[in-house]
Simulated scan of single mutants.
Amino acid sequence: MEISQALHHAGAFPDTIVASIQMEPRVGDSAGNLSRSLQMIEEAAAAGAALVVLPELANSGYVFHSRDEAFALAEPLPGGACASGWIEAARRLGIHIVAGIAERDGNRLYNSALVAGPDGYLGSYRKLHLWGDEHLFFESGNLGLPIFDTRIGRLAVAICYDGWFPEVYRLLAMQGADIVCMPTNWVPMPGQAQQQTAMANVLAMAGAHSNGVNIVCADRVGTERGQAFIGRSLIVSAEGWPLAGPASASEEEILYARINLRQSRHARHLNAFNHVLRDRRDDLYDPMLGTGWPLPRH
């Protein structure tokens, strides 16, 4: 979609231009991945984007042969080479960047996302819900679900499989998140016909609608060591409708959309009677998802 078309469909009272960068990181080529991502970040900034989201593990690639390889490709935050490059770009361009990154913290590895802005490093998020072989390399996230207060609104992060858990979006919405940034490496889902809407897209739209949050999904493309990725990056409004995308299943591209915080926050009012957060039955379950009675875990 042309930028002008994307912005037109997003509404008549624009506020913030956001960009989802769909690219193809190369496993083991951190320097090349940084260079390519910076090229696309520059392009997005030149088009007016104030927020740019990169895919999951954009520094390292995804399919590791061993923990030793994953460890060698990971880097500390915020001082690693790719992290420093993205933080410098955010300062120089006066934008916000959310980038998926393989993080090394001592002897532990995390599937993380760096958050940077015009004033530098804002913090990080560590993926809570690991997928498949990620369990062989990474620890589950231990930073919870932080909110980053910025001049463009309250930003939050979820990574890929986190989006399969409605609790993630609900807890972020309860903390006042305006925009959920989702670096992702979506893979084909079992049983899904080729022409069907991607399950990941359906879940993002449902999560946005049910919680009144905008979601910026940045996926990768390509096949890495036999693992295919589906592309189809997407930017979803707080009403649950696509603002831009789905992107191509195979090509690098940048999606753009406008997000207006006033309209977004109003989207939680479905009509004169219903509000997606206010209508929760907190006489049956507490506001932060506790049940009040023990549940078995099997």
Rank of each mutant, 00 (worst) to 15 (best):
Y121K: 02
N185Y: 06
G11K: 07
V168G: 08
L284R: 01
A70N: 04
A218F: 12
A200T: 11
P183R: 04
D162G: 00
M199P: 04
L51W: 00
P146A: 01
A218C: 09
V180Q: 05
N33R: 00
H275W: 02
S35A: 14
L7K: 07
E2I: 15
G117S: 12
V98N: 07
F64D: 07
L261K: 11
G32Y: 08
R170G: 06
V202R: 06
E239P: 00
H96Q: 04
G163E: 11
G226P: 03
R67D: 07
I95W: 09
P190T: 03
S30L: 09
R220L: 04
V216R: 02
H65A: 05
G292L: 09
P78L: 02
L143F: 12
S66K: 06
N142L: 08
M288D: 13
R220T: 03
G245D: 02
H9C: 12
V53C: 05
V27M: 10
S20R: 00
E253H: 06
L243K: 02
G85M: 04
Q5P: 04
E88F: 13
A81L: 10
L51V: 10
G226H: 09
D133M: 13
Y161D: 08
I17L: 04
E103I: 00
G123H: 06
D29V: 05
P146V: 06
L243N: 02
V63L: 07
E42T: 10
V98L: 06
G117Y: 08
V180F: 06
R232W: 12
L73M: 14
R268Y: 14
A72T: 08
F64V: 06
A46L: 13
A10G: 15
I97L: 12
A208P: 14
G28T: 08
V27D: 06
T16K: 03
Y169E: 11
W241D: 13
E24H: 10
G231Y: 12
M199Q: 05
C160G: 01
L114W: 07
E134L: 00
I254G: 05
Y285G: 03
F13T: 14
A74T: 03
A31R: 11
T291D: 07
R26I: 14
S35G: 09
E251V: 10
L145V: 03
C181L: 02
P294A: 12
L57C: 03
A31F: 13
A70T: 07
A249P: 05
E251Y: 14
M189D: 14
G141S: 01
W164T: 13
N185E: 09
L243W: 10
A19Q: 03
A200P: 10
N211F: 01
S248D: 14
M40W: 11
G106R: 03
S112N: 08
I41P: 04
L73F: 12
A267H: 13
V18A: 08
S233Y: 14
G117C: 09
P146M: 09
H266R: 08
P183C: 03
I87H: 04
C160D: 11
N214S: 03
R220H: 13
L128F: 09
W186G: 10
R104W: 04
F165T: 04
